[in-house]
């Protein structure tokens, strides 16, 4: 197992290196100009010479290979360069915000699991009944309703009922759990609905698959009670794909909360991502994409290791 794990971890390195190179190259062709934006977006008299001088100062006029060497040599030290907007280290900008995104992703996951398990199981056990149809419609609805719209409606609902919105500015869970939860609960619901639908649907089809396995069919499970017994037995198999989906969704959420963070004005890496695109802050954008990809690859690895721990065959296959 250890050998397998080490092998997999080592395999991560070339993948991430390739991501780094591709991201660098792709972003060099971005049209747009952050210096022009900084100096003239609010009007005013700024000459081309001043703009060029500022670009030179920020290293934007360096030849491509110089920029590339600087960027690649910084990576092993965790140095992602400076944000062209704030001139702070990109790693610091990301570190300041990733906690919030992580917490929101985690909270949404918990919420999703709590909702998804009963729904998915019931839907499978009562396949073809009204209950199944209702749950299916609910869950298909969950992946159809845009989460930003749901978020907008939630804010209006809160204003109409409670009347006040939770205070602005990230409050750490450890500093003030109550305020933190007030801030997080609405975004978590708006993400969690979609998330739970995805999980519930996967759970349903996995359980159905378990029920249709040959050995179960021979058990001639027709009654509900027998079905439950079988599902209990087969749950381990049914859970595997579900856990994978949960893991993948979680990894996606780490960088994919873009829209939700915008709706709820949360200072996470999703909002930072949109800001960096709008401002054309290439260094920051590059760092963010790399971070998100790393998070994703790591979560993927954990899922694989989890699988391997459960099923020894996998270790020897690859």
């Amino acid at each position: 197992m250890l050998k397998y794990a080490i092998k997999r971890i080592l395999l991560m390195i070339p993948t991430l290196l390739a991501v780094a190179v591709i991201v660098f190259l792709v972003l060099r062709v971005v049209p747009g100009d952050i210096v022009e934006l900084k100096l003239t977006a609010e009007g005013g008299e700024v000459s081309l010479e001043q703009i060029e001088a500022e670009k030179t100062r920020l290293g934007l006029n360096d030849p491509l290979h110089v920029q590339f060497i600087k960027y690649m040599s910084g990576l092993p030290r965790g140095d992602l360069g400076i944000s062209l907007w704030t001139e702070e280290p990109v790693s610091a900008e990301i570190a300041a915000r990733i906690g919030l995104s992580f917490e929101l992703a985690l909270l949404s996951t918990i919420l999703a699991v709590i909702i998804a398990f009963p729904l998915g199981t019931l839907s499978a056990l009562f396949r073809g009944t009204i209950l199944d149809y209702i749950i299916r419609i609910l869950t298909i609805g969950g992946i159809a309703v845009p989460s930003f719209w749901l978020g907008m409606l939630l804010i209006m609902l809160v204003l109409a009922t409670i009347g006040t919105l939770p205070p602005l500015g990230t409050v750490s869970l450890f500093a003030d759990p109550l305020v933190n939860l007030q801030q997080m609960i609405w975004p978590a619901i708006s993400v969690g609905y979609r998330y739970s639908s995805v999980v519930a649907r996967m759970l349903r089809s996995s359980i159905l698959e378990v029920l249709s396995e040959d050995y179960i069919r021979t058990a001639r499970a027709k009654g509900l009670y027998e079905k439950i017994v079988i599902v209990k037995h087969g749950m381990r198999n049914a859970l595997l794909p579900t856990v994978t989906v949960i893991g993948l969704e979680f990894a996606f959420l780490l960088g994919g909360l873009v829209v939700t963070e915008s709706v709820f004005n949360l200072n996470g890496i999703g909002k930072l991502f949109v800001d960096s695109v709008v401002r054309n802050d290439l260094n920051l954008l590059q760092g963010l994409v790399l971070t998100v990809a790393t998070a994703f690859v790591v979560v993927n690895l954990l899922i694989d290791l989890f699988y391997a721990a459960l099923d020894p065959r996998i270790r020897y296959q690859s």
């Binding site: 804010i155 204003l159 006040t164 919105l165 602005l168 500015g169 004005n265 200072n267």
Partner: peptide
């Protein structure tokens, strides 16, 4: 003073955030 980066004006004012 405490100032916040906001996206919209109306909701934060109504909700007592600013």
């Amino acid at each position: 003073t405490e100032s916040f980066r906001i996206k919209k004006v109306a909701e934060p004012l109504i909700g007592g955030q600013i």
